[in-house]
Design a protein around this nucleic acid. Structure first.
Lengths: 66, 66
DNA sequence: TGCAATGGTAAAGTAAATTTTACATATAGT
DNA sequence: ACTATATGTAAAATTTACTTTACCATTGCA
């Protein structure tokens, strides 16, 4: 699964730590999602989409491996 | 988190087993998501959204507990 | 009445998400 | 040169997702 978190963070001028605080997870969780070390839960995806005011599909996209 | 899976299945006339087959998970996984026994991964949410041709937000919605 | 399909759920096991702590690196500002 | 900030990552621990097997109840149909 691809993600656009890093770009969205840049657009909103948020650090990984900022974003983590906003949605109540650790900084490493954000980093791990960004670097595709693991796939977030749907709750996290919805929270991230809410922060960036975009649909989940604008943040996460299935790829061939999924 | 609330979900509208059962209704969407009904609209598309799919059994839990049908839907499970379509996205490559067990029937119990679908049942457990529907009955909120656990929160699916973002990959599953995207796959479900794809099957029903709806945005993730039309299938899953954050509630107060999230 | 018997049977197939559907849905709910439980237990045990495996895989994966998430936290905490910790360390390393790069960069920018003082 | 020092400090602060941001990022990447690793290991261990804990929690949760997901699979497999299995059983029960309901409904509709032969």
């Amino acid at each position: 699964m691809k993600n656009r978190l890093k770009v969205c963070r840049a657009e909103n001028n948020l650090s990984q730590a900022d974003l983590a605080d906003r949605i109540g997870v650790s900084r490493q969780t954000i980093n791990s999602i960004e670097t595709s070390r693991y796939v977030p839960s749907t709750i996290l995806a919805l929270k991230l989409a809410h922060v960036f005011q975009k649909p989940v599909e604008a943040l996460f996209e299935l790829d061939e491996t999924d």
